[in-house]
């Protein structure tokens, strides 16, 4: 197996995630796309771990950390979406344009 086949797959998945983040209107779907990006990072980490034959499995450990952090991120992210939804009656990121002020 080539290392690059995994890395390219990761890159493709990451780019798809970026595309999703950029184009999705619904905030929940934006979070979904972020999950795709994180999954892509995990693939890279594990592939590198395997490639460098690390005795301490650092790549895998960090993939686990990424998963944990991602779980935390989803929790907080959904809580924020929920809060905005309550205030604005919409989960549509189009309507969060307060940065323009």
């Amino acid at each position: 197996m080539l290392i690059n086949q995994f890395l390219l797959l990761g890159a493709a998945l990451f780019s798809l995630g970026v595309y999703g983040v950029l184009t999705r209107k619904n905030a929940v779907l934006v979070l979904l796309s972020v999950e795709l990006m994180l999954a892509a990072v995990n693939i890279n980490l594990v592939a590198f771990d395997r490639y460098f034959v690390d005795t301490e499995a650092a790549g895998q450990v960090f993939a686990l950390f990424v998963i944990t952090v991602a779980a935390a991120e989803v929790g907080i992210g959904l809580a924020i979406v929920l809060l905005i939804f309550r205030v604005r009656k919409s989960a549509n990121v189009d309507e969060f344009d307060l940065m323009k002020l």
Partner: peptide
């Protein structure tokens, strides 16, 4: 300048 995060992203 749209004020929308995604455009900035």
């Amino acid at each position: 300048q749209t004020g929308r995060v995604q455009h900035y992203a």
